[in-house]
Design a protein around this nucleic acid. Structure first.
Lengths: 336, 336
DNA sequence: TTGTATGCGTTATCAA
DNA sequence: TTGATAACGCATACAA
């Protein structure tokens, strides 16, 4: 069923059918009704590819690639971007990389496929992971505006929104020392994520300023994506009898929740026996028991800002890349 | 920049350029290299619309419309669907309706827009909300395979995967009576969501079988999408001095977490003073303190099953609609 | 191995 | 108000 068949059945030309569809006011009422009836009767739906070829327009679709929907951090990002984009008539679709996250070949294929299908007008890439050297080469081919959220420093030729992570670490340390905590341990989600490398560096630099060092044996590797892993790791640590830090700085809240539950389940108290600090301040953290102290990043604002840059870029593709930094704050609650 | 320009610059025909792009093995090596260099130099990227018009193929994109990404329930759904779809080379994009969720005009526009853009091969609709009478009319126009997850009964002409909610309620009631709880209250997320209406009906029917009734004043309205609302409502209830039920059956876990925290903050104990049962068993519930008893729905399986039906439908569009029911289970933890 | 020519389904221009 | 037709950018059957 194409426009030609409809035209034939309705006894008009294809031009009239097209007009009936796109500019109904330019078609005589009787004709319009007749055409529309034929269209309805045959459940005709026009070919979007032909339409776009004949008269190119925007797709109204924006795609946001994220590492893992399981972390609420990312849907707050999505929410922010969606708020802004929908005002301008765009639809935001989130695509979670999930298992492909460590596979740069696959990542490149995804971007390539998406681009080739012409599915979207612009792309938002979230999470520092995406920007390893192996992956970046695929991006220029896209010829679509791109904005990154929290990319690693390699991507300095791309538009991006970033969190001033150093400040977050600094605020935390200030609070911890004020509370009398000196022995800090860090729980991260793996060195393959650039975020880990960056934040560990900031912690070490900060401590160095005070002539202190971060003990290597107090740096623990877990996973950013599940509560489970951190729970298991912490349970093991508590059972091992090893010397542990007084405070655990977790590089996201999912991990903080996991270790907290392990601490409680072993009969220890928070923050009396161990204090816990998370990162991101996802919405659950406030309701966790004990409520979680966390380095809050302005997640929704990150999304909004990325969306604004993207809109800007779409209407003016030749703008030079810009980087915008947003400040974190420390939300102090019961866990510390 | 189109294929013609490239052909001219490379001194070949458009056919050769097309071949270089799609069947490089059919082009002489020198020619191929020359063409490819011109393509790279000009950052040419082909027009996906023209390509698809000339030789129609699948887009590899599947869109899943969901009410709200803020509820982890939905990303587990996404995860399940993604697992299956990616095996077959499809990309799943989640589109969260967010604020437009109560606006059926907007919903129809969204589906219409997406369909007109044609960039997906199939659609998964999640959440009972989508299927009110005002909305259904828009669907047939789409002419793309559609599968629903947990639709309301109106949508019985659409392929769908459903949870056997009645059984979930039954399992819960059985457990509660065994534990000696008789006074049940229900917390739901609003009557505009069909899920609410259905489950309340099941609860009432079940109680009626035992010659009991659900007290109208023990049916509380909150919101499915935020923990906040339920926290606030429960705080108010506890302060009001009104008579309250012994057990709160919450129609999702977000609400269960909200009221639990309110109960604890007012100095009451769970499950001693009040017991709490949630629904869905999202991943956080296990780690909440006290851990949450919840009616677990096989969320990932729901997503997987929906994906399988969709795949089936895409390769065989004339299949009659099918409905598959999946059973819930009761996960008993500390809160009850 | 390469080129020519045609068609894909729609929109838009121009005439009628 | 309507119709004939060129054009959109690409893929492909067929010819060379």
């Amino acid at each position: 069923m194409n426009i030609k068949d409809i035209a034939k059945q309705a006894g008009v030309s294809t031009a009239t059918v097209s007009r009936a569809l796109n500019n109904p006011e330019k078609v005589k009422k009787d004709t319009l009704e007749r055409v529309m009836r034929v269209i309805d009767d045959n459940q005709y739906s026009l070919n979007p590819f032909a339409r776009n070829l004949a008269s190119p327009g925007r797709t109204n679709n924006i795609v946001m690639l994220i590492p893992n929907l399981a972390n609420p951090f990312f849907f707050e990002l999505i929410k922010g971007a969606e708020t802004v984009l929908s005002e301008y008539g765009y639809y935001l679709h989130a695509h979670s990389l999930g298992l492909h996250i460590n596979d740069s070949v696959m990542l490149e294929k995804i971007i390539d496929d998406l681009g080739n299908e012409g599915f979207f007008d612009g792309l938002i890439l979230a999470g520092s992971l995406f920007f390893n050297k192996a992956f970046i080469p695929g991006i220029p081919k896209l010829s679509k505006p791109i904005v990154c959220i929290n990319p690693n420093p390699i991507a300095n030729d791309l538009d991006s929104v970033l969190v001033d992570e150093r400040t977050g670490i600094w605020l935390t340390y200030e609070h911890l020392t004020k509370k009398g905590y000196n022995n800090i341990g860090v729980i991260h989600g793996g060195y393959h994520i650039d975020l880990t490398v960056r934040k560990l560096k900031y912690v070490k630099e900060l401590l160095a300023d005070f002539n202190l060092t971060l003990k290597e044996e107090w740096i623990y590797e877990s996973s950013y994506d599940t509560i489970e892993d951190s729970y298991r790791i912490m349970s093991g640590l508590l059972q091992s009898g090893r010397e542990l830090p007084q405070v655990f700085l977790c590089l996201n809240d999912l991990m903080a929740i996991g270790i907290s539950r392990a601490i409680l389940d072993k009969g220890y108290s928070i923050p009396k026996d161990f204090a816990v600090v998370g990162s991101d301040d996802i919405s659950f953290s406030k309701y966790f028991n004990p409520s979680l102290t966390s380095i809050k990043v302005p997640t929704e604002d990150l999304g909004k800002t990325a969306a604004r840059i993207l809109l800007n870029k779409m209407s003016n593709p030749n703008l030079p890349p810009q980087r915008i930094y947003l400040p974190p704050t420390l939300i102090v609650r019961e866990s510390c």
